[in-house]
Amino acid sequence: MTSTSIEAPLVQVRDLVKEFEVRRSSWRTQATTLQAVSGVSFDISAGEALALVGESGCGKSTTARCVLRLTEPTSGSVRFDGVELTELSSGELRKARKRFQMVFQDPYTSLNPRMTVGEIVGEPLLVHGANAAEQLARAAELLEQVQLGADAADRYPHQFSGGQRQRVGIARALALSPDLIALDEPVSALDVSIQAEIIRLLQHLRDELGLAFLFIAHDLSVVRHLSHRVAVMYLGKIVEVARTADLYSRPAHPYTKALLSAAPIPDPLIERDRVRIVLTGDPPTPVNPPSGCRFRTRCWRAESLCAEVEPPLIDIAEGHKVACHFNLWS
C-alpha cells in the first residue's frame, strides 16, 4: 500500500460539519447547536484502511455515519470515487450504497431478530434486485467466507453468540461486494478473546478482497493490527493523521501521546518503563468548545497562544499531519 498513489483517492472528505440542535428545555423554543463534527477532512485510497480514533463523544461515529450518509451532514463534501454523495437524491443514493457498507458496534441490536441469518445476509441482494436462488447461493457463500458455515442460514440471530452475530453483520456488509466498509467499533462490544478472531477475520477479508476500511475505535491497540493510517479525533476535529507505524513510534500531538500511553504494551520489559500520561478532567462540551486549540484545557504544554489561535492541521513529515502549535517534535 503506497501512500503516494497517483490516482484520486476512493473517498475524499472535505470540511465535514455535523450540527445537532439541542433544546435546553421543552418549553423554551430557542435551541442551541452542538457541533459533533467540526470541519473534518481526510482521504481513503482504494484498499486502504484508515482508523478514526478518539474518546467516546468526540464525533468519530458521527463522522462515519455522515460519510455514508446515514445521517445528513450539515455542510461539507464527501466524494466517493468522484461522485459527490451529499448531492445525490434518495433514489440515486440507494443505488450508490452498493459500494459502501457498514458494520455496526452492537451485534445484538444490528440484526433484525425476526429474520433468519440467511435472510439478513441475503437482504442486500434482494433489495438490489437479485432473485431468491441467487440470494440463497450468495448467502451460503458469504457465511462460509466469514467462517460461520452455510447451515447457519436457517437459524435466528438469538441462537448465536456476540462474536458469531458480528460475523453475520460482516457478511451482510460484504454481500454487495462493496469497495468501502465503515466499521463502527466492531469489536468493542465483544469479549477480548473474540475480538482477536474478528480482527483477524477483517484483516483477512481486507487483503483478500482489497477492501477499503474506515475503522472507528476508541482503543489504539485494536487499531494497530488493522489499519494503514490512523486519524486521531478530539472534540469533533482531527488533531493528527499519520501512517500507523509512524504514529505509534513518534506521535506528534500531545493528545495522541496521552492516548498511546494509556494502552498497555504486551511486552513486560517495555511495559515496565511505560509512563502513563493521565489527562485530568473530562473533555469539554462540544456545545461550547474552548477557544483556539480545543485540547488546551487538558494539555500540559498549553501556552497563551493556544487559547488565541486555532492550530491548523499541517504537514510535519511525509504523510504525517498534526494540529498543534507546540507539537512533540518541535
Binding site: F104, V127, R172
Partner: peptide, 14 residues
C-alpha cells in the same frame, strides 16, 4: 432507532 434499521438503510432498502 435500533441499529438494524440503520443497517437496512445502509444496504439501500426503501
Amino acid at each position: 432507532h435500533r441499529d438494524h434499521i440503520q443497517a437496512a438503510v445502509s444496504i439501500g432498502a426503501t
